[in-house]
Design a protein around this nucleic acid. Structure first.
Lengths: 234, 234
DNA sequence: AAAATGTGTTGTGTATACAAAGTGTATTCT
DNA sequence: AGAATACACTTTGTATACACAACACATTTT
């Protein structure tokens, strides 16, 4: 690989691996291993770490190796407090400011998402979904809202990877509903309908939240009492 | 100075200098000059630049020196779009979550602000005000809201330094009104009154906005027509 | 004379070597 | 045997040297 592309390649790899939880939350990152893997010296690798720390992908601790940013219970709560508000504002501004080229890009991202829904695994799905929402962020184009929004997107992808594996038909149905939301979002943005866009933002998060609530507190199994054997010692 | 404190000192200096516009928006930063000034080699200095880039203090461009983050007209507009919403949410959460020790810290910051109002210059005032609002951010303690809020605070300080110089009695009166807002904010947080806190957030921004509008579009001078001489060629 | 290109200088990007801090293990002492 | 300490090893932080890219100015060419 040309020397010039190695640093961007490392950055892209880490972003992708963290978003898809290929590198799991809290996991240690090995500096020298990544140096070897990407043919870089420690200096540029550490600069990438610092960039990713600023973006919220990794945590940098003094005299200690970098870790993939954690996903604790408190962050999950914070997430659902902040997300509807921020995403509502983003979509509102997107409806107000989007230019045709961006709408085209959004359509492309949605096509890719639909394709991932059909043919690809959870990781590709999460990345495609992430790309879709990133574009809405670009459309809004507000310097002050974007940092928080981008952090939300990082953890949205990672939360999705842990909680949003469609093992049941109901979950699969949710995914296709999410896809329909995307279509409606595109329409609202193209029409410049801010109120509709804001409403869709809220709907979209409610879908995610219900999905996760269902995962964390699944329906009780419909099994007669006493049918679980208790072989392990108390 | 002990070698261990040099890097934090550089970080603190740059933050302060940028907030007070001692280093002006868009100004170039000289790497080697700062190395000499703080007794550091280029490596740690560049790491500090990257940190500040992530925090929104500095812009880092490829193969080009770092610049103090710009304050353009578009950012001013973006600012007043995002600030009321974000700060409303922050104060709401602060009222919900603040612990007594934090309320004490906030009181201390307000004392410092009042003192700066009496004895100190614009820079100290801006820093004290900044500190006050930073603490409300800590109180809210929401991982996702904080990045945007911190960026807003950076530019709030810098906007204040350019637009909020109390050259008239009216402006001075505004400053003391801001100080009363702070007192009311402390009371609302201590009482856990979320609605009041949210309302105060909005009031506080309106004060800032009116101040700036007045600066950008000052009252017409009360001078008879024709009294301006036109000596320069058309 | 104007434009374009070459060269020198400045400053950024990367590699490597060295220093310091942290961690784990083994040994010793109680 | 258990605990504490010392020592070795691993990993992070910093400094310096080198490579490369960008900019400015001068020179040349049309």
């Amino acid at each position: 690989m040309p020397a010039k592309d190695r640093k961007p390649a490392l950055l892209a790899y880490l972003k992708r691996a963290i978003l898809t939880t290929e590198l799991r939350p809290g996991e240690d990152l090995d500096e020298v291993a990544l140096c070897a893997k990407f043919g870089l010296s420690r200096t540029p690798v550490r600069e990438v770490f610092r960039d990713l720390d600023g973006l919220g992908f990794v945590d940098l601790r003094e005299n200690r190796g970098p870790r993939v940013a954690d996903l604790s219970h408190t962050t999950l709560r914070d997430f659902f407090l902040a997300a509807p508000m921020v995403y509502g504002a983003i979509l509102r501004l997107a409806a107000r400011n989007a230019i045709p080229a961006q709408v085209e890009a959004l359509r492309g991202a949605q096509d890719a998402f639909r394709a991932a829904l059909r043919n690809k695994g959870a990781a590709e799905r999460a990345l495609a979904n992430n790309r879709f929402h990133e574009i809405t962020g670009d459309m809004a184009g507000n310097t002050y809202l974007l940092p928080s929004f981008k952090r939300l997107l990082i953890d949205h992808a990672r939360i999705g990877m842990t909680f949003y594996q469609p093992q049941t038909n109901e979950m699969a149905a949710n995914l296709s509903e999410a896809s329909h939301h995307h279509d409606a979002i595109i329409a609202a943005i193209e029409a410049g309908d801010e109120a509709a866009a804001a409403r869709l933002a809220e709907d979209h998060w409610n879908l995610s939240r219900h999905q996760i609530e269902r995962f964390v507190m699944p329906k009780a199994l419909d099994v007669p009492m006493g049918s679980f054997s208790r072989s392990s010692p108390a």
